[in-house]
């Protein structure tokens, strides 16, 4: 069993007076893929957005409990969310490349963090695009606008952009829900490769996807963690009735 990278302890979250997460306790191991599944509105996206403190941007959002990253509570007073997000990257549901060139998209993170050296930037851009399996398609059109790429390419560009910051963890928030099956397969292959170097947490409403890419799976329902375990076990021998009902497609 590899080491625990992220651990949630009794995490509660409220939007105003509505409680969206209830006492979530689970541990996500290093360099493994943890999938979070569940029906719409179950809190899976809310939970993943706690891990890089994206919920800080939401007004009236209140969090109690602990969320440990490398043993430190990221909601502790000494933690700077901006610094944290350099280590915990995120890929969103809808591809959201910046309206600038492919190169500038990938170089954005390193530049924001102060890198100016052109050769170094060139190297990072190439590495990141290779790691996201996009280099062969865009290597000679780096000056082209990222907006002109296809949806699937845009999403891989967003992955490259995240890799360029050299995070330890990558959060995927339903990364394929806006993509066609072929683009989806490419992203899944990519996740399988990336897990050798990164800890990955992926939210998905697609159960086959969870079964294909993840090592561990968490099933959320109505803001609660119903069941968490090895993916094989969650899909083949779930302990809870509601987990089985969901994974076999009886609801959700």
């Amino acid at each position: 069993m590899s080491e625990i990278e992220i651990e949630s302890r009794n995490l509660d979250l409220w939007y105003g007076s509505a409680q969206a997460l209830k006492a979530i306790t689970m541990a996500m191991p290093e360099k493994k893929v943890t999938a979070i599944i569940g029906p719409s509105g179950c809190g899976k996206s809310t939970f993943i957005r706690c891990i890089n403190r994206m919920n800080d941007l939401v007004k009236d959002c209140r969090i109690t409990g602990e969320l440990l990253f490398e043993g430190t509570n990221i909601y502790g007073n000494s933690v700077d969310a901006v610094e944290l997000r350099k280590k915990i990257g995120m890929v969103f549901q809808k591809p959201n490349p910046f309206p600038m060139s492919i190169y500038d998209n990938v170089a954005y993170g390193p530049r924001v963090h102060g890198l100016r050296n052109r050769e170094e930037l060139d190297r990072i851009v190439e590495e990141s695009l290779k790691a996201s399996a996009l280099w062969n398609e865009v290597g000679d059109i780096l000056d082209r606008s990222a907006i002109d790429l296809s949806g699937g390419q845009q999403q891989r560009l967003c992955i490259a952009r995240t890799l360029a910051v050299k995070p330890k963890v990558i959060l995927f928030d339903e990364p394929c829900s806006a993509l066609d099956p072929i683009s989806t397969a490419k992203i899944e292959d990519l996740i399988n490769t990336l897990k050798h170097d990164y800890t990955i947490v992926i939210v998905t409403h697609n159960m086959q996807q969870a079964a294909r890419v993840s090592d561990h799976t968490a099933f959320f329902l109505l803001g609660e963690l119903v069941e968490f375990g090895k993916t094989k076990q969650i899909f083949e021998l779930p302990e809870k009735k509601s987990t089985e009902d969901y994974t076999t497609g009886r609801f959700g």
Binding site: L57, F92, C158, T162, V165
Partner: peptide
Amino acid sequence: VPGGLREASFALGAT
């Protein structure tokens, strides 16, 4: 300007 662009930037550790 789409909110997704702001989120993307924040998620990369930008201020």
